[in-house]
Structures are given as structure tokens and as C-alpha cells.
Amino acid sequence: MRILFRLALLMVATGALFGCAHNYYNIPQDTLEKRVRTIGVAPFFTDAESDIRHPEKASIVSIVRSYNLKNEKELIARIRSTGIFYAVRPVTAEPDRLFSSLVWNREKRDDARIVYNKYFFKKDDLKQLMTENGLDAVLFVTVSGLTKPGKVFSSNFLSYLETDFNYLTMSAVMLDREGNTIWEYPNFRRESPSYPMFFSLQYPDFDEAAANLTEKVDVKFKTVAGVNAAFAKSEPSSVANAPEVSTLYVKQFDEMLALLQTYKPLFGAKEKEKETLPAPGSAPVYYTPPASAAPTAPPPAAPVSAAPQGVAPAAPAAPVPQPAAPAAPAGPPPITSGDIVPEQPPAR
């Protein structure tokens, strides 16, 4: 029994040492830490033109837009709490307008047996967005429709239906100023890529088939009220003093955050010297007054020889007046509206 316990403990320790050393970014972690300091999180996109086949599509799109707006702040707060980046800022913009101005193409992909929607962004507009907001990278999250093969079991697990189902899916990508992909979800740097769907818009009606004594199972769309009820189901936020968050979003956020984490080797890594961060170009520059010149000391007086008896010593020459030292300025000039004080890094 002890041998089994020790073996299990060894396996857990080995997994902790080597399993956490995976880098899910498309660039080395050292490069990430040096170049990607401040990131922005764009408002969540809803791709209304994607493959959403619900007969009341407009209502479904409206529900998604509403809950995107309610839950996007949770992801920003959770990324901040990890301390991975120097600063995490929301990008203030109208989601649909930003989506139409940045995205020029969508493509349904099947990579490593993962079916997903991939989005392509305009490089010039992307660079302008990041320059205006002082960002090194931006994280885009998109909810879209997707039809793909699925396998759904009945409630008693005695039967199942394997066919195409229509889903809502959530994807994400982090891009730098040149449009290069720094990180993406679904993530293909995992040993076994997986991509859980955000929400299924359809379900197989096993009960109706059983009631009619038939093996033919119809696939039906969920009602608008049912979709809204599923999105409204919430739970407490993992961030202190934050409002409740939709359970559907929590599951996706957990997946993404597990792939955003960076690793810290426990053994064999020499501690690197802390680099001094260069002052951002927008940091205020204060005026430092030049040191006032020290007054020139008068030359030493020539030795006075002893005066002969009966002769009075000569009166000393009057001192030459020295120019007054310039008055030091009262203090640094006030910060103008264009000066930006860099954010302080979060406590690690």
C-alpha cells in the first residue's frame, strides 16, 4: 500500500514539475515577457453573419450581444489577477462597428480535427488601434455560429444520435501590432488539442421518438426562452467584489486562462537579473534646474609684513562684491494633459 502511495505521489510531483512547463504562446516566453507588456481586451464580438441556423436568428444574436457585454469585464479582471502582463486595459469601442472595421474575412477551418471559425484582421487598422491606445497586443474574443458533427446521448445513456448540430462557439486570438498571432483559442500547441463548444442551439428529441415507437430521432432547435434561461444562469465571480458571471462564460474563461498561464521552472534555472524597464515614450519628463555655480573664492591675501614702529598699518582693501546666485526655480512645471503616467505593475 505504501509503495502505491509513494508511486502516486511521485507521479503527481513529476506532473507538477514537467506538465506546467509548456508554453502555449507562439513566441518564446522570454520574448513575451520583454515585448508584450501592455495588452488590450477588445469588446466581445458577435458575428451575426456566421452560421447561426436558428429560425429566430435575430433574437439569438440579441441575447448573445447582451450577455457578451455583461460578462466581458470578468475576463479582463481575471487576466489582470494572473499578473502575466504589466497592464491589461479594456478597449473602449462599439463592438459591431469595431468588428466591421477590423475583420476582413472569416474562414471555417478543420485543423488537427478541430473545427472552428478563424478570423483575419486588417493590419493597418489593427496597428492604428494599438498605437492610439498605447498597446503591445490586443485580445479579440468572438462568439459565432458553427455547424459540425456531434454525438449526443439520451438522458438514460442507452441511446445516442450522431449527426451535424448547430452550435454557438467562442474563439479568441491575441495579435501584435504587425498582425502576428501571439496566442489563440482553440490552441494548437497543446499535446491533445480540444475545443469545447460554447452552447448547442439544437437537441435530439429522444422522448418523442420513444413515444412514437420509432428509431428516427428528430433534431430540434431550442426555444428563445430556453436559450435566454441558459445564458442567464450565473454563479459568483472568482474576482473579489465583482458581479456574478454567466456559467456558460465561466467554462470558456477557465479554458482560455489555463492556456494563457506562463510557467516558472523550479529547478535548473538561474535567477535572471531584473531588467530596468525603459520609461515609456509618453511618460512625463520633468525639468531639472542646473546646479548653481559655486561662488568664486577670493584669492588669499598676501602676507602683511610687520610695519615699522611709528607707522600705522594700511587699511585693508574693501571686498569686491560678488554677483548674486540665480534664484532656483520654485519646482518642476505642472504636468500637461498630454503627459501620461505609466501604470504600476500588479503585485506578483
Results as ranks from 00 to 15, higher is better:
241 N>D: 12
81 S>V: 01
156 N>M: 03
2 R>K: 08
27 I>E: 09
85 F>R: 02
212 N>D: 13
159 S>G: 14
83 G>L: 13
225 A>M: 09
46 T>G: 14
151 K>L: 12
236 P>F: 11
240 A>P: 02
289 P>T: 05
223 T>H: 06
78 R>N: 05
262 T>G: 06
206 F>L: 01
321 P>L: 07
32 L>T: 15
322 Q>L: 11
154 S>T: 11
94 E>G: 01
222 K>M: 14
118 K>F: 05
162 E>N: 10
24 Y>L: 04
173 V>W: 07
69 L>P: 00
282 S>M: 10
327 A>H: 04
289 P>Y: 08
318 A>W: 05
328 A>I: 02
235 E>M: 08
65 R>K: 15
35 R>G: 07
142 T>N: 15
194 S>C: 06
26 N>P: 03
169 T>I: 12
270 K>I: 13
328 A>Y: 03
18 F>Q: 00
221 F>D: 05
324 A>R: 10
176 D>T: 05
27 I>K: 08
199 F>C: 12
119 Y>C: 04
101 S>N: 05
205 D>C: 02
298 P>S: 03
294 A>R: 12
211 A>P: 00
198 F>A: 02
228 N>V: 01
82 T>L: 15
346 P>L: 10
272 K>I: 09
143 V>I: 10
333 P>V: 07
134 G>Q: 04
95 P>I: 02
153 F>V: 01
126 L>R: 02
345 P>S: 04
257 L>F: 01
42 A>S: 06
36 V>A: 09
139 L>A: 04
191 E>T: 14
87 A>T: 12
52 I>H: 02
73 K>Q: 15
127 K>V: 01
63 I>H: 05
7 L>P: 00
197 M>F: 08
199 F>N: 04
209 A>P: 04
119 Y>H: 05
284 P>L: 00
241 N>H: 11
252 Q>T: 13
143 V>T: 14
292 S>K: 13
197 M>Y: 12
228 N>F: 07
179 G>W: 07
263 Y>P: 00
252 Q>I: 11
343 E>W: 07
137 A>V: 03
117 N>C: 05
311 V>A: 06
261 Q>S: 12
68 N>S: 15
84 I>P: 00
72 E>G: 06
229 A>S: 12
209 A>M: 10
6 R>W: 14
164 D>L: 09
157 F>H: 11
165 F>K: 06
